[in-house]
Design a binder for these strands. Sequence first.
DNA 1: CTTGACATGCAAATAATTATCAAATACATT
DNA 2: AATGTATTTGATAATTATTTGCATGTCAAG
Lengths: 216, 216
Amino acid sequence: MDKQLRMTHQRELILDELRRGKTHPTADELYERIKKKLPRVSLATVYRNLEILSAAGLIKKLEISGRQKRFDWDPDDHDHVYCIQCQRVDNITLAAPVPQVESTHKQGYRITGRRVEFSGLCPKCVRQQEHHQAKGESSMSCPSCSASKLSDTQRQVLQALANTSEACGSKELAAATGLEAKQISCQITALKNKGYVDSPVRCKYAITDQGKQALE
Amino acid sequence: MDKQLRMTHQRELILDELRRGKTHPTADELYERIKKKLPRVSLATVYRNLEILSAAGLIKKLEISGRQKRFDWDPDDHDHVYCIQCQRVDNITLAAPVPQVESTHKQGYRITGRRVEFSGLCPKCVRQQEHHQAKGESSMSCPSCSASKLSDTQRQVLQALANTSEACGSKELAAATGLEAKQISCQITALKNKGYVDSPVRCKYAITDQGKQALE
DNA sequence: CTTGACATGCAAATAATTATCAAATACATT
DNA sequence: AATGTATTTGATAATTATTTGCATGTCAAG
Ligand SMILES: [Mn+2]
Ligand SMILES: [Mn+2]
Ligand SMILES: [Zn+2]
Ligand SMILES: [Zn+2]
């Protein structure tokens, strides 16, 4: 009656990749890495195997506060910190064990598990923030830093906006870039957040001076 | 530059309802309650306002481990327990404060928040489980309890299976029940989990003895 | 070899949340 | 009270993360 686990090529690769990295990747980060070695794997297979492996106790599924699930090569109980900026997750050790719940406060609960999760800025993001504070700028308006975060698609959209003199809508942008219309709005939002694009009129977007700088 | 909050009728109702209940409802639980007083509200409005109110610090958004977000009328820091069975969330008090992270283990993180989450069975679910253990049965095979969980659709499908002498596929079931084919397989899976149906041959399903009992 | 349980890839479904936008509303200012 | 305007709403579409159905493929025991 008990299910036997078959060690398939993809399952082996997934477990291997997770153990090698010793990080806490999301399913799709892992998927991207696996694809390089096995281009035809499906994201569903990655999800399925991560589920199966964690049910079997070989790895651990980390359900961290409302965001994407992450997977841990180490199935033993331990606590984590995560970066509220870049979403990175690391292990962390407490100075002392977590206190029990007083029985007077259990309210009849039969407690079987606990999770302790610290949050803050990872070293990299701390440095980034210090750099901006030194200049007295908001991180949004720092060209050298924000520019590095422009994805190819974002650059493409921004370029299209730079080429028009007037503000234009997402359909025109879709036509100009050849991207799918539904992707455009997503990119626009990201660009707006970076201060590279603004919306003079509803549904019309224009490149900002900062945006122009970012393209150079 | 600072946003002014308008006290609209719906916003007032949402805040009110959350504070009155002193529970930790999900957005849609709250939505159902609000609808009774204001039938035309939109779920989006509830989500929007919960977001705005928690950004303003009037309430707190609880992001509990990969499941539906819950909202807390009390914005002050405190810890929670949740029931792994019925998803109920309650406040909990620890015997002592949560220990700090030793600086040698911070690994450069600048820690700004922490979340402590206990999990287990709530009083109601504990009682339910004890009831099953007393009978020495898995909860799945307890007729009085499982039967009550049969949805109308599931009962319909199960009945159709009971009417055939041989195992049959999902298309036949769709025809027999008049349900959409795509819904059948979903119901079959649920019924298999309950032990009411099994699959003697791939893609063919038959009712089990337990299933027959459940129909009575 | 066969066979059947277990796995996979692909597409489509789901669930929770968020975005879009025209129309309605609240609230400060005439 | 009437007006101007930024905020908010309801309805709906879109997005994101994850799961599922299903036809097909693979492995390992007999
Ligand atoms: Mn870990
Ligand atoms: Mn609470
Ligand atoms: Zn970071
Ligand atoms: Zn419960």
